[in-house]
Amino acid sequence: MSMFKSLSAEAGAEILSAMRSPSYMIPTLVFPIAFYALFGLVLTQGREMTAYLLATYGVFAVMGPSIFGFGVTVAAERERGWLQLKQISPTPALGFVFGKFITTLLFSGIILALLYCTAAYGGIAMPRVVWASLLGVHLLAIFPMLLIGLSIGLLLRSNAALAVANIVFMGLAILGGLWMPVSVYPEAMQNIAKLLPSYHLAEISLAVSQAPGERNILGNLIPVVVATVLLLGLVMVSWNRQKK
C-alpha cells in the first residue's frame, strides 16, 4: 500500500513538472502533430503517403517524451543532487524511473491519440485490429527510446545531455526515415538507417499497418530487441557507476 502511494506520488510529481515545462511540452506535444499535419496532410496529394507517415510519425511521437523526458531531466536531477537525495530516502531506488515512465506513457498516449485523430480526419480508415496493433507497436517503441534517453541522462552533464538528446532525436528521426521514406535516400544513408532502432520500429509499424511493399517483421524485430538489450546493459552499468 505504501509502495503504491509512494510510486503514485512520484508519477504525480513528474507529470506536474513536465506540464510546467514548455521546453518539454512544445517539442514533445506540438512538433509531431504540427509536422504530421503539414507533411502528411497538407503537402501530400496521395492518401498513401498520409498512411505511410502515420506509421512512421507514431515512432517519432513517442521519441520526444522518451528521449527528452529521461535524457534531459535525469541529467539535470543527477547534477543538482536530487537523485542522490532520493537514493538516500527509503523510497524504492527505481521509484523515480517509474514516475518518469508513467509520465512518458501518458504523454506518448496523448500525442498518439492526437496523431491518430489527425490521420482519421485526413481520411485514413483502417480496421480496428490494425489501429490496435499500430498502437501496440508505437507504445513498444517507448522502451528502446526511453533507454537511449536514460543512457544520455546517466552519462552526460545536463548541458551536454540537452545537446546530445537533440542530435539523437533529430538523427534518429531523419536517418531512420521517420520524416520521409528511406527509399529516397542514397544507398550509403540507407545502410546507416539499418543500424538505427527508429528505422526498424518504423518498418514494423508499416508492416502492421499493411503499407505497400514486402516487409519481414521478424527481420526488423530482432535488431530492435538486440538494441534494447544492449541499451539496458549500458543503463545498468552507468546507473551503478553514478551510484558508487
Binding site: L16, R20, E77, G81, L85
Partner: peptide
C-alpha cells in the same frame, strides 16, 4: 538528511 549540494527540482 540535508546534503550540501541537494538542490531540488525547479518546477515543483
Amino acid at each position: 538528511i540535508m546534503l550540501q549540494d541537494g538542490d531540488l527540482p525547479d518546477l515543483l
